[in-house]
Design a binder for these strands. Structure first.
Lengths: 236, 236
DNA sequence: GACGAATTGTACCGTGCGGAACAATTTGAG
DNA sequence: CTCAAATTGTTCCGCACGGTACAATTCGTC
């Protein structure tokens, strides 16, 4: 009865994919929480069903693990974005939807946001080195470019509109809302980050970005457009 | 002739304030560049005119040094902001100026931005613990609140305008513009961060934020307001 | 010029942590 | 069954790096 204890302890079943997924999931959380140099490989290993040995076996070194975790974060978030279909909406409404969706989606992607923050601290060196991520983002802006083109063709949007500049503005609000929440609420209090205030902020930036995109002549009564129903993506 | 070499090596003049300033200046750069855990005390010491010993003598430990560096960053940036006087401008123009100034001022405060990024990675724990910083920021938003009140009294601004929410939006664009430059330009190219494009972005957010603040009835011809002369603060 | 407090120099310690060595077990192919 | 390749367990190393001990020098003050 006591004999097989030792044998059991030293026996295992192989399951490479599951092991790698397990490691990556833990690593992502840990890197997102502590940063590249702040995260501890041993801590990651301990939160895993396997050992530190496996991390080095599958990912080589700390940077290799970090890079894969970064790619995982990007992939997850891009998958979420792909679910959004705006092709059959009029351009102004499509843009409003896109902004509201981006705002909501960022709020649900805390780990991704934090990984991007960390990458920026490191001057995006690892991101720039990852061909996978660069490829993924080539298509990330296509949706917005399509909306811009349709809006201009319809005479609704300004003719000098730049999709990348617009994306910059949408990202800025949606990203900052999460990335700077700690300092912002430490200084100005947590009110702005409660549900009701967040809904108001969302309406505010939807409006504000429509004002950027629309021709002055089309700029009447955009107020109502802020009241967009909550994004239909389930929060699981 | 060779005798005093050893004596010289072991002799020095005291200058506590200069030593502390020297250390803080180097530490700020180093922490801003590498993060709290990424920065090396020994590296900081080596870039200093003094030794590692002095860092521990004056600042106790790594976190003490980091906290002081953070406070220094805040103080420097707030001093820069204090130079701006908008009291005798009409509220809409004052707001436009404030936005443009904030955008420009952030661009010149790279170290400050990076320190705030790092604080956010650490959930603002050190910032929240610093009474000095909390006090400094109580007055940081007063300028904007004054503009809002004047704008509402004049019937120009929306009556439900929230100064903190407006500040959030201004900060988001100005902050993101620096904080996420590495990842953004790694993905979409560096064009958006060259002088001409930056001037356009600045005009874009000035407009966009005026659209948030102004009553719809006052929302005509704000286009021109984007063209604000470069901030008069010398870049030294 | 002597004495104590404030500064600074030098040398060192403890250990946390990234990583490697080496051996054992499992699995699939033939 | 055999054997090599893939996967995992165990154990330890090297050293970078935060922090300290102890001594020396400087400086104000009386």
């Amino acid at each position: 009865m006591e004999k097989n204890t030792e044998a059991e302890r030293r026996s295992w079943r192989q399951n490479p994919e599951a092991v790698q997924r397990d490691i990556l999931s833990v690593a992502l959380t840990e890197f997102a929480a502590k940063g590249l140099s702040g995260a501890r490989i041993e801590t990651i290993a301990s939160r895993t069903r396997t050992s530190k040995r496996m991390i080095y076996y599958y990912f080589g070194d700390k940077l290799g693990l970090y890079t894969k975790a970064l790619e995982t974060a990007y992939m997850t978030v891009r998958e979420g974005e792909a679910a959004l279909d705006l092709a059959d909406l009029p351009p102004d409404e499509a843009l409003a939807r896109l902004v509201a969706f981006t705002f909501d989606h960022h709020r649900k992607s805390a780990d991704f946001i934090r990984m991007v923050m960390i990458e920026n601290i490191h001057n995006a060196e690892n991101l720039a080195a990852s061909q996978i991520i660069r490829d993924m983002n080539v298509t990330a802006i296509e949706k917005l470019e399509d909306i811009c083109r349709r809006g201009q063709d319809a005479g609704l949007f300004r003719s000098d509109l730049d999709a990348v500049a617009l994306h910059w503005q949408i990202s800025a609000a949606s990203f900052f809302n999460l990335s700077n929440r700690p300092t912002f609420s430490a200084i100005f209090g947590p009110d702005l980050f409660e549900e009701k205030a967040q809904a108001r902020l969302r309406a505010q930036i939807v409006e504000s970005i429509l004002a950027t995109a629309l021709k002055p002549s089309a700029l009447h009564g955009i107020r109502s457009r802020g009241a967009i129903p909550d994004s239909d993506t389930p929060t699981e």
